[in-house]
């Protein structure tokens, strides 16, 4: 109980920084995820996050060889993640453009192959003398408990940068997601806009790895924005709500994971965001189940009334 109070009241400096960091991450994931969802590329984040795994392993091994036993430097592991993640996305695009394979099949290929490669590399790392692969598992399942305040700052700053870019290019990305050919017609380079959007997804996915884990980081991109759609018909409001839900579930999940022993934070964050999704699904004021039931009943009554008249 003491422990619980200490965590929730954010007495420790470290806890406070970590909570702020994951809040920023949740916000950024909600924002970026909204645009990915509307661009119909929601699962690209999944392919990307799975594709980061071999990069993390390779970075870990290389660093282990160069600096003996120092394989756990977060910036090094994350740069490895960026390289192989981007490579994975390029593979998906190449397969889609050069063959007749559809995008979903291409993503299925890339995410399973890259993740398989990563799993094999992890097996090798476990056999390497003197190395401890325990740090890697945090990237698979998410472990906010292992975050230092430096890690949290890194995550928070990058998340805030992503949010800034998104605000700056809000109008352009809105047009890209709604009507690609019209965007081209009025002179915006859709290739450049797509690169910016994918870049943002890469950034938030990679910094989100440590908190949520690469298997479940997709949840933080999709669930908040999908939930937000139940509440509004305006893109601006949807982005705000998605950010709010993302931040809430990230913080809530991190706290639950800190309080309950043996629960990876990835799982708790996903379950928290699912709670938000369920609430939105039922009570959402635009498309929620309750409002739909009510409009349906109203229409039925009107028809009956007219039939009587």
């Amino acid at each position: 109980m003491q422990e619980l109070l200490r965590t929730i009241s954010l007495t420790d400096y470290n806890t406070r920084v970590v909570v702020l960091g994951v809040a920023a991450l949740g916000l950024a994931c909600g924002w970026v995820g909204t645009f990915m969802l509307l661009r119909k590329r929601a699962l690209m984040g999944d392919a990307l996050s799975h594709a980061t795994f071999p990069g993390i392993c390779v970075a870990f091994m290389l660093f282990q060889l160069i600096a003996d036993g120092g394989g756990k430097s977060l910036p090094v592991l994350l740069s490895g993640a960026v390289v192989s993640g981007v490579l994975g996305v390029l593979c998906v695009m190449w397969i889609r453009n050069q063959t007749r394979i559809k995008e979903d099949a291409a993503m299925g290929i890339v995410l399973s192959v890259f993740f398989g490669l990563g799993t094999a590399l992890r097996g090798i790392i476990q056999k390497m003398p003197g190395s401890n692969s325990a740090g890697l598992d945090g990237f698979i399942y998410g472990k906010t408990a292992s975050m230092t305040s430096f890690d949290a700052w890194l995550i928070g700053v990058i998340a805030m940068i992503s949010c800034g870019v998104l605000l700056l290019m809000y109008k352009e990305l809105k047009l890209l997601c709604f009507d690609e050919s019209f965007a081209k017609g009025v002179g915006f380079s859709t290739t450049r806009l797509d690169i910016v959007l994918m870049g943002l997804v890469t950034l938030v996915t990679v910094v989100g790895l440590q908190a949520v884990g690469l298997i479940l980081v997709i949840a933080l991109l999709i669930i908040p924005s999908a939930s937000a759609r139940f509440w509004t018909d305006r893109l601006g409001v949807m982005v705000l709500i998605a950010g709010l839900i993302g931040a809430t579930s990230a913080v809530g999940g991190a706290l639950i994971s800190a309080v309950v022993p043996n629960t990876p934070s990835g799982a708790t964050i996903v379950l928290t965001s699912f709670g938000c999704f369920l609430l939105s699904l039922i009570f959402g004021i635009r498309r929620g189940l309750m409002i739909r039931q009510r409009t349906l009943r109203k229409a039925q009554q009107e028809i009956l009334l007219r039939a009587k008249l």
Partner: peptide
């Protein structure tokens, strides 16, 4: 699955 465009259903 591939023809039905449900590749990720298995996942």
């Amino acid at each position: 699955l591939v023809l039905r465009k449900m590749s990720l259903m298995g996942d």
